[in-house]
Design a protein around this nucleic acid. Sequence first.
RNA 1: GCCCGAGUGGCGAAAUGGUAGACGCGCUGGACUCAAAAUCCUGUGUCCUUAAAAGACGUGCCGGUUCGAGUCCGGCCUCGGGCACCA
Length: 921
Amino acid sequence: MEYNFREIEKKWQAYWAANHTFKVEEDASKPKYYVLDMFPYPSGAGLHVGHPLGYIASDIYSRYKRLCGFNVLHPMGYDAFGLPAEQYAIQTGQHPEKTTNDNIARYRSQLDRIGFSYDWSRSFRTCDPDYFKWTQWAFLQMFCSYYDNKKASARPIEELVAAFEASGTEGLDVACGEQMSFTASRWKALTPKEQSEILMNYRIAYQGETAVNWCPGLGTVLANDEVKDGLSVRGGFPVVQKKMKQWQLRVSAYAARLLESLESLDWTDSLKEMQRNWIGRSTGTEVVFKVETAGKTTDVTIFTTRVDTIFGVTFMVLAPESELVQALTTPERKAEVDEYIAAVSRKTERERIAETKTVSGVFSGSYGINPLTGEKVPVWISEYVLAGYGTGAIMAVPAHDSRDYAFARKFNLPIVPIIEGCDVSESSFDAKEGRMCNSAFLDGLTVAEAIPAAMDYVEAKGLGHRKTNYRLRDAIFSRQRYWGEPFPVYFEDGVAKPLPLEDLPLTLPSIDEYKPTEDGRPPLARAKDWTWNGYPLETSTMPGFAGSSAYYLRYMDPHNDSALVSREADGYWRNVDLYIGGTEHATGHLIYSRFWNKFLFDLGYVCEDEPFRKLINQGMIQGRSSFVYRVVGTNKYVSCGLKDSYKTQEIHVDISLVHNDRLDLEGFKAWRPDFADAEFILENGEYICGWAVEKMSKSMYNVVNPDDICERYGADTLRLYEMFLGPLEQSKPWDTKGIDGVHRFLRKFWRLFWDGDDFIVSDEAPSAEDLKTLHKLIGKERGDIEAFSFNTTVSAFMIAVNDLTDRKVSKRAVLEPMVILLSPFAPHIAEELWHALGHTGSVTFASFPEYHEEFTVENNCTYAVSFNGKMRFTVDLPKTCSREQVQEHVLAMEQSGRYLEGKTPLKVIVVPGKIVNIVVK
RNA sequence: GCCCGAGUGGCGAAAUGGUAGACGCGCUGGACUCAAAAUCCUGUGUCCUUAAAAGACGUGCCGGUUCGAGUCCGGCCUCGGGCACCA
């Protein structure tokens, strides 16, 4: 029997499905291990070979953990709400659910061919009402909660109401939009509607007026991480700033905790660093400047991280969107200021980014008073100051801030250096070094000393206080789309109210068309009766990240209809031990999920504060495009090596027509009509294509479908090859050049069991050599898998099989453990051979072979022994004895006094197999 | 501009501070074959020389620590990724 991977793989995939081999239940007698992949958004293009890279790695680890005796939860599902299905629906009128289901069916069949050990009984789609019921539920929990900074925890909103009734805002430290201050009696005097409006300022899910990223091309708002360079990540449409009333999540309340608990996570440093940057903690000082405007005085609070430079302030700047702009504009400046603000607001985000280097601004007519010097400085308005950060107002120190410097130069404002010896004639001196001067009590201090000294001074004089700011914004949570979770919210007299929990899920209404209404309202406004008990319902829907924020919890208990996850299931599975996915989710999903989890933790619904303990980012697999070279003006194609002798045009050619860079000439002619009568200029009788590494995409004809690889080489070869390609976390181009070698390895392994027609495994006892081969492999595999170094594990396997093939070893005692070792990587062939060896049941539940170091010891050999690198004598020792053994041996000789001549040995260093070096002083 | 990460044969890549290039691809030559495919064997960092052996040089560049550096430290160069008017 030859290795017939097609038959074997079909057989075992059917066996696993029929026997529910990978179905798991909570089992208190076994330790749990939770391995999760970032679930896919099923796009119309299907999977390409890059997608399964992480899935294969997590599957190998899951299977390995099962062999080690863990109860492994390894689920898979679909992130099914989203823009592409909706865009397609707008164009074709087809319901997005139909598109989504078609795509999911395709994904599922592609995934099934690769032989993953998922527990499919736990699978769900985020667009299933049974699932999004809990997305809506979580939203309502957030709507009915506020964040208490003192307790560092979310609390039910009733507690806040009780506090307002008892003593107003007195003594409260809670997360909010706008700082409010009122008494208990004032609160009680408010109408219910007014009270609701105030509570909106404190809810964790709240509705508020805010500048949003409005994308006219998509007809919806987008979150910050959905916008890149002023264009939408999906679709690439321009994005403009617009003020709109939107649902938002108070993620900013969790900024400090999100930052702190990063430390405890087993994530890569680069990913943690990305999150740190995104959260953007900065400690500084808020200082109050009194500003005079045509006789009136207004307090303006500014934020700075460099109070030490306050003696260098020569002007102040407000953001154009700052609420203070109107109050601080003098009548004679009003026209000019209004015009500037109008001009700024017309700009798109993209234009603002493009014009970063051009400096613009306008003088307000007001003057601020430096609280430390009493000096009067002009107040300007400029778009380089952002309304959304700090207080939307700054003190400008052009000598020591490059942006202030550029502004001062443009508008001819004074530049006063306050650090000794710095040169500000060409540019500002931003470095935090040197000694202070022209700064009264700070003179002579270093910058490092001056910063806290200035902070202390400002606080002592009551001019301001220390303040920590975060760059992390609240998440905009509404989308003007159809294909998302509806908000479980209705409006009574304009006041948003939660639907009762028993009415969840609130499912999508059917509508005739999926685009916005003519008057620009979201598609849900087209629904005939989008009301609840006669009250109008919210017409926007939730964004893509809503459904993906807590999906890992649902896998623990996917069919529970009375809770997102039961206390028992959550208590057993706790959180994800290993999460594998792409780095593109660093500042989106991975922040939202952590926030969402912490919120549920605060309310006691989950037992772990962090969702993902260990996280691995698999690299991207790029495409390797192939080119042919058409001689310009002809239908002749010249082979790559000869192309320099002609004037040629480079044309992408479908890589299915190319094998090892050689073009299939007939296939090429048949590919497209205009190539039908192509002529070729060959080198050595072959047409060699050129190539380049590019993103894998349809338009470059470089997409490789895993189905094709499974068909040609089998899923086991695909799995091994994807791992063999290089380190998991590294991006690399897909290149089928080496796949034959991996496939050859599997056939070699097979031939250790089958010789043509006969099963040739014997019960002969293994030799010392055989045991050495086996135990080297066991030791290597265990270490490498734990380190996620799968490429070297595959190599170790090849070495072992080469050894056995060379010695013609087909002994059960060696091959049986090797089948178990191979099973995480190539599960189908492993099952087949496991059964050929006479076992029943799946190899999944075998035990990982034990490792015995003594079996890896080789025969004696002669070591050279040297002192400080200088050769002295030789000694016979086992060929691969441990360093400790050699040290012991050599030190014993040292004690006999023969070699060291009275010198003290510092260290004995052994190069296995060859050299012993003794360091002496 | 700031913050990460990476630079090793023709290629993908290995190497707890200890024989650099394991393993695989490709290529060389050979066996089997009418032939091909498949399979097996041989060689394969560079240079010099050779019948053979033996040398010398080699991990982006310059320096340092060390008996010993691809690996650790300092300074550059190049490439990839992330952030970017965040005061």
